[in-house]
Amino acid sequence: MTEHRIFSMPFAKVYPLYLQKAERKNRTKDEVDQIICWLTGYSQAELQQQIEQQHDFATFFSQAPAMHPNCVLIKGVVCGVRVENVTDPLMQKIRYLDKLIDELAKGKALAKILRQ
């Protein structure tokens, strides 16, 4: 089976798209960063380092300190696919992040996005 192209895509190339999506809906970079750090366990400095080093998604998630235990509560559809039904662990993590950014852009409260 071939790997998905997204796995080898630099996270730093997609990160600005996450920001644009959020900022179009009057959300902030800080909120996007908070979501990413909550999901992956990165600190703000570690997140910035990952972006500067141009790591691909596979490396970005493999080096993540710890996926948040509440990430299993992330449910819903992204790009026509239910995130809870994605079988590939890396693709599921990417879809989790996509779903959280979608929720932010749709105006959902940050506390609800972070499953608190």
Rank of each mutant, 00 (worst) to 15 (best):
A22P: 07
G107A: 14
M91V: 04
K25Y: 06
F11C: 04
G107F: 12
A12M: 03
I35E: 07
N26C: 09
H4T: 14
Y15T: 02
L97W: 01
A105Y: 10
S8Y: 06
S62N: 13
V81E: 07
Q92D: 00
V32E: 04
I101M: 11
I35W: 04
V83A: 00
V78M: 11
H4F: 14
E31A: 06
E46P: 10
V32M: 09
E52Y: 09
V77T: 15
Q63F: 06
I74F: 06
G80W: 09
E31Y: 05
K21L: 13
I51W: 04
A64H: 10
Q20A: 13
L90Q: 00
Q116M: 15
L17C: 06
H4R: 15
Y15M: 08
C71T: 13
Q50P: 01
N26H: 13
L97G: 03
N85W: 09
H4S: 14
D33V: 13
A22E: 08
S43V: 08
Y18K: 00
F61M: 02
T28A: 11
L110I: 15
N85P: 01
A58C: 05
V32L: 07
K106I: 02
N85T: 13
D56N: 15
L110T: 10
K108V: 15
Q54M: 12
D102T: 05
N85L: 12
G76T: 07
R115F: 07
V86H: 01
P65V: 04
V81Q: 09
Q54I: 01
T40G: 00
T2Q: 14
I113C: 06
E103N: 13
R115W: 03
L100A: 11
V83L: 01
A109W: 01
A45T: 12
Q116E: 15
K13I: 11
I51G: 04
A58I: 02
Q92C: 00
F57T: 01
Q116R: 15
E3H: 12
R24D: 15
A45R: 13
L19R: 08
Q49R: 14
Q48F: 07
E84V: 09
A45H: 09
E103F: 08
Q63T: 10
A105D: 10
H68I: 06
